[in-house]
Simulated assay, not measured.
Amino acid sequence: MNKQRHLLVVSGPSGAGKDTVVRRMMEKYPEIEISVSATTRLPREGEKDGVDYYFLSVDAFEEKIQRGEMLEYVHYCDRYYGTPKSEVDRRLEVGTTVVLVIEVIGAANIKKMYPDCTLIFIMPPSLEELSRRLHGRGTESEEAIQKRLLRAKEEIEKKELYDFSVVNDDADRCAEEIYSILQKRLEE
């Protein structure tokens, strides 16, 4: 069994619906587990430490980097985001399919370390819809939203680096498409 095939990396611009799509897929297919990422941003309403993210101080995050405990990390929109190595390795070791929801830079680094993993880029239906979603959150300033939209354009240009690209025009349909891709990869 190729354990790397059990690693699914999902990326896309902020507001593309990555977390929603992955959550829907996991609700329907409980054999899939998400790797909990770490971040230095503050929790949004309803988010729980250790469930949605590990919410860390900048100092704590940088200490983990220095100790080699982060599989990948990125400084994105003035915050750190990264994947604790232990979160991935313990799941892959027992053959669990694990999903990483990470940024484009991190995805490229993961592909180098786990060349047989599957990279999927989630696209918004349009940039206009992406803007609507970001504004609809009501959690960020207009300046932060504009930074995210600018970054989204840069990220979309990198979608060709992914094994697959899917459009999130409906979260349930998108989740099914990703699950189907994953199943085909596991059968290869």
Rank of each mutant, 00 (worst) to 15 (best):
N2W: 12
K3P: 09
H6W: 01
H6V: 06
H6K: 11
L7I: 07
L8W: 07
L8K: 06
V9K: 00
V10T: 00
S11D: 02
S11E: 01
S11L: 01
P13H: 13
G15F: 05
A16I: 05
G17L: 01
K18S: 03
V22H: 00
R23N: 10
R23A: 11
R23Q: 11
R24A: 15
R24L: 15
M25K: 03
M26L: 12
I32Y: 10
I32V: 14
E33W: 03
S35L: 04
A38H: 02
T39I: 07
T40C: 07
R44Y: 05
G46F: 04
G46L: 05
E47Q: 11
E47A: 05
D49I: 07
V51S: 06
D52W: 04
F55E: 02
A60W: 00
E62C: 05
I65E: 06
Q66I: 13
R67K: 15
E69K: 09
L71H: 02
V74P: 00
V74Y: 02
C77R: 12
G82E: 00
P84N: 05
S86N: 14
E87V: 09
E87N: 06
D89E: 15
D89T: 14
D89F: 14
R91E: 08
L92N: 01
L92A: 06
L92W: 00
E93Q: 09
E93Y: 05
G95D: 08
T97S: 12
T97D: 01
T97G: 06
V98F: 00
V99S: 04
L100A: 04
I102A: 04
I102C: 08
E103Q: 10
E103T: 10
E103S: 13
G106V: 04
G106C: 08
A108M: 12
N109W: 08
N109D: 09
N109V: 07
I110C: 00
K111N: 00
K111G: 01
K111R: 12
K112R: 13
M113P: 03
Y114L: 07
P115L: 07
C117D: 02
T118L: 10
T118I: 09
L119P: 04
I122Y: 00
P124M: 08
S126N: 11
S126T: 15
E128F: 07
E128I: 14
E129G: 11
E129Y: 08
E129R: 12
S131N: 13
R132Y: 04
R133A: 12
R133Y: 08
L134G: 06
L134T: 08
R137G: 13
T139E: 13
E140I: 11
E142Y: 10
A144E: 14
A144Q: 14
Q146I: 08
R148S: 11
K153P: 11
K153S: 12
E155P: 06
E155A: 14
E155T: 11
I156R: 01
K159N: 03
Y162R: 01
Y162P: 01
D163Q: 03
F164M: 06
V166R: 02
V166N: 02
V167G: 06
D169T: 10
D169V: 07
D170T: 07
A171K: 10
A171H: 14
R173T: 13
C174V: 09
A175P: 14
E176D: 15
I178G: 02
I178C: 03
I178P: 03
L186H: 03
L186E: 09
E187I: 11
E187C: 11
